[in-house]
Design a protein around this nucleic acid. Sequence first.
DNA 1: GGGCTATATTGATGTTTGTCAATACAGGAG
DNA 2: CTCCTGTATTGACAAACATCAATATAGCCC
Lengths: 113, 113
Amino acid sequence: MKTELLTVLENVSCCSDLPTALSSADAEAKAARFKALADPTRVQLLHLVAGAGRDEACVCDLTDTVKLSQPTVSHHLRILVDAGLLTRERRGTWAWYRVADAGQRVLKADLGF
Amino acid sequence: MKTELLTVLENVSCCSDLPTALSSADAEAKAARFKALADPTRVQLLHLVAGAGRDEACVCDLTDTVKLSQPTVSHHLRILVDAGLLTRERRGTWAWYRVADAGQRVLKADLGF
DNA sequence: GGGCTATATTGATGTTTGTCAATACAGGAG
DNA sequence: CTCCTGTATTGACAAACATCAATATAGCCC
């Protein structure tokens, strides 16, 4: 028989046999996590909060350091919180941000590779 | 003396003491890596190539699986290669993609959490 | 209550990004 | 060389995004 397995597969497509694809929900969830860190400012913010004195930082200091407007910093922090990378706690007038579990895992994996 | 250290710090800003910031080049480099995976299609492509039969996959099969136009798939693959997550090898008419070292590290970290 | 400060939200704007159609390039077959 | 097939690039366009100014909200202090 002339057409063995490889040839059959090549008829279907060119040749590679691929695993089952991720569900689109799964792919989107993972991509969303990466997207939260796909901005230099947010990488910086995660770094700053992670290295902060009592493991937490408030918006005003972060704003001073990253040199962007306060609304912009609040916006980025919101994205990091929504992604589960930071947590937010309001104490009095200030809002304190800490690195969440998922954020720790990112830092541990040194996903800057 | 009435103004001890904490009070002085609070005059400077509100209170947190932050680490030295990342250089903007460093932050941008890390963000660029994350950005490459900040799209569901590219997460899917990395997954598919990683699980492919002989550890490699060609564009045509990937195109069939992700159900996007061939130019779009080539575009995403280029981004993954540029980010150092995949490698590309041309053999005859086909282009074969494999997971690069940085890509392995991402997968090992379970796609970031 | 009124004023003040830290933070969040809204609106607007320029930039980036994902996608496809059309086209170009590369390489094997005849 | 000429077709044909797989892949890459270009051009165009709509959607998403980062940023800031203006405004709103929250919580102290008087």
